[in-house]
Design a protein around this nucleic acid. Structure first.
Length: 417
RNA sequence: GUGGGUAUCGUCAAGUGGCCUAAGACCCUGGGUUGUGGCUCCAGUAUACGUGAGUUCGAAUCUCACUACCCACCCCA
């Protein structure tokens, strides 16, 4: 047995796939109610798309992408969902259509990382994107949709954190101020923090190194450096969330690791998820479409980790309905009966009944046992004896009662439930 | 890349140097009067001590290495 599943991936077994289907259905319904339509893009794209979109200095692009060369092209498995949608949105000129344009997606994503609880190399995301609105009403709707969806699947113990990371203008100001603040102690920070000083000083604030944190106390906050526009926008977002009755906390610590974000950044975090506590992260990206070669076009969206959502559901004991059992099992004794059973099963199925039959040629006892484990509420037993009489035994598995009926009548009973 | 933990049948799990050619439970299969499940009883099945060295008269039990998995840092969904 050397052939095992690659590290960082997981099989979704039949025993759990129903939960996935249920969540997907829930997500689709929520999106539909907000007018978002499904977008399906390829699982791989030109590597350059991600380099330009996500940012070539980000960890994701620098060391986590599944990149391969084929026919002299460099391709990469999507590490997140937004870039592909943006690419296609531009390529198909959907920006020329009705705006705002609203999409959702359900997709696997790939990042070469060390495995951990809530973190895999192949993982799955629900996500939405809204293009063409620079109003905070859009940000509020995106957040509301996520909030709505999370609530609808019964999870609790999650909190919404919001922040504004400003536009390129105020970010530049802030960046300078931050560098000035850090510079005196730069040599005392940890290596990674030092390496980020020039490329992405804002991420230094994220450092978990306790020593680093000592030197970061009293560091300037982005919220103090927002330009008039961004400041106003952030206030508007909060007003909109207040109006919707969605609770949130302003958390200046949120710095999205993907470069394309501007202004709004938000996260839904859970306190029962362990280290990987972010179940949903998103924000505004006002220049991404342009960056990838499209027109000036603001956007806002989020990505939501399905595996993490499932962990969260499990952690707080939220119920996902059980997969429906089969309606009826047809047990057959003897060759003639077996053939008849198959025919009857086909008839019932064509009427939408979920029917199981024996496919092993096992004894009656074993067939009933199998029926029981399959959760069948009714069992139709036919043998050559019954066949001769044109009858069948209809057994109610719940009440252990049984009666002999003409076959047609038995079928009718089953159809009636 | 850096730490820590774990590794016994399909699954869970006893066992801490000789009674272990490894308990038990679950699962699975068959049976308890010729054709009736869930409970119960009986039986059956299995080349289970991660791999490789070492210590020892003797190792699942001790040592080392390796591997795999898990958890944490980092980063993120």
């Amino acid at each position: 047995m050397n052939i095992s599943i690659p590290k960082g991936t997981k099989d979704i077994l039949p025993s759990e796939s129903y939960r996935w289907q249920w969540l997907e259905e829930r997500f689709r319904q929520t999106c539909a109610r907000y007018g978002y339509r499904e977008y399906r893009t390829p699982v791989f794209e030109h590597t350059e798309l991600f380099q330009r979109g996500i940012g070539s200095t980000t960890d994701v692009v620098q060391k986590e992408m599944y990149t391969f060369e084929i026919a002299e092209r460099s391709l990469t498995l999507k590490p997140e969902g937004t870039a592909g949608v943006v690419r296609s949105f531009i390529e198909n000129k959907l920006y020329a259509g009705q705006l705002p344009a609203k999409f959702y997606y359900i997709t696997p994503c790939y990042r070469y990382e060390k495995m951990q609880k809530g973190r895999q190399r192949e993982f799955h995301q629900f996500g939405i994107e809204l293009f063409g609105s620079d109003s905070m009403l859009a940000d509020a709707e995106v957040i509301a949709l996520a909030y709505d969806f999370l609530s609808s699947v019964g999870v609790e113990g999650f909190r919404l954190h919001i922040n504004s990371i400003g536009c390129p203008d105020c970010r530049a100001e802030y960046r300078k101020a931050l560098q000035d603040f850090i510079r005196p102690n730069l040599d005392k920070l940890c290596e990674t923090s030092q390496s980020r000083f020039d490329t992405n000083p804002m991420r230094i604030l994220d450092s978990k190194d306790p020593d680093d944190q000592k030197y970061l106390v009293g560091a300037p906050k982005i919220t103090d450096y927002l330009c008039g526009d961004c400041r106003k926008a952030f206030a508007e977002l909060q007003d909109a969330l207040d109006a919707l009755g969605i609770p949130y906390e302003v958390d200046p610590g949120i710095v999205r690791g993907l470069d394309y974000y501007t202004k709004t950044a938000f996260e839904f975090v859970s306190d029962r998820l362990g280290a990987q506590s972010t179940v949903c992260g998103g924000g505004r990206y006002d220049h991404l479409v342009e960056e990838i070669g499209g027109p000036e076009m603001p956007g806002v969206g989020f990505g939501l980790g399905i595996e993490r959502l499932l962990l969260m559901i499990e952690a707080c004991g939220a119920e996902i309905p059980a997969e429906p059992d089969c309606d009826v099992f047809i047990a057959a004794m003897g060759e003639r009966a077996q053939r008849e059973a198959a025919k009857l099963a086909a008839r019932l199925r064509s009427s939408g009944v979920k029917v199981l039959t024996d496919t092993c040629g096992r004894g009656l006892k074993a067939q009933l046992k199998y029926a029981d484990r399959s959760g069948a509420s009714k069992c139709l037993v036919i043998g050559d004896d019954e066949l001769d009489r044109g009858a069948a035994q209809l057994r109610d598995m719940k009440q252990s009662s049984q009666e002999e009926l003409p076959i047609e009548e038995a079928l009718e009973r089953i159809l009636k439930g």
